[in-house]
Design a protein around this nucleic acid. Structure first.
Lengths: 126, 126
DNA sequence: ACGCTAGGTTTCCGACAGGAACCAACAGGT
DNA sequence: ACCTGTTGGTTCCTGTCGGAAACCTAGCGT
């Protein structure tokens, strides 16, 4: 009746679930989007992504790097220069990510409108 | 230079960013996936989604409801029965969500493999 | 000698996730 | 009449995490 197969990533620790939890994160989607058009520097991302802190950006990039989605290229220059780039595996995410961002662009206003419209007192419990 | 337009949802509080942050969340993606095939009861989702607690499920559903993506239908029966269903707006998310879950199914193993393979000491700073 | 730049880490504190226990409402058994 | 089971939800407590600001490293220009 459920319509789902038994391996449908509902199991808490299956690889698919872990993969989703890796990218279903407040900053990860935006960072991946920022990387989707080619190599970008740390500082560029800081300036590009409004509201992110260096700490969270580094943390997010490290996690993606550890999972093989992002490659970190540090040049031995002064001042230091570091570029981040999607790996081939990471590049397979561009499609899904862009679908999400396109959806957000198309429906962001509707979602915000609902916040003001919905509050009819519906009484969730008694 | 950047290749991004100025409205490219990098601004911290633009509707697109808020919409992404609404669904880019540990549980939200899995819950939306659980709803993607039709109305589901609260208890069904609890049994279906490994690892989620009643509290987090309720919280996630309420947030989606407030943003107009999910509709809550409570039947006045005993014991109580509550069904959750995607709204038309919520249904527009099925495509993006399924792309994500398909990606996760296809690449989950690769992502986990990278965790064991990568740890070459790369020296991120000095 | 000093400050600037660029990437990163450390410190501190408030907020939130998560689990367990509790609550409400009524049907049905005894 | 009383107790129990079912279902959905909330409350309480604690550990962890996010976020801002300060600090660190290393060379180059002046």
């Amino acid at each position: 009746m459920s319509g789902f197969g038994p391996d449908d990533f509902f199991l808490a620790d299956c690889p698919a679930r872990l993969a989703v939890e890796l990218i279903a994160d407040k900053w990860t989607v935006v960072v991946l989007y920022g990387l989707s058009k080619g190599p970008v520097r740390h500082g560029e991302l800081i300036g590009l992504i409004g509201g992110i802190s260096r700490k969270m950006l580094t943390q997010t990039l490290r996690r993606l790097e550890a999972h093989g989605l992002v490659h970190r290229r540090a040049y031995s220059e002064v001042p230091p220069r570091v570029e981040y780039e999607l790996t081939p595996l990471g590049a397979t995410l561009i499609g899904p990510i862009h679908m999400l961002t396109e959806w957000a662009r198309a429906n962001g206003d509707a979602v915000l409108d609902a916040l003001d419209t919905d509050p009819e007192p519906v009484a969730h419990n008694g």
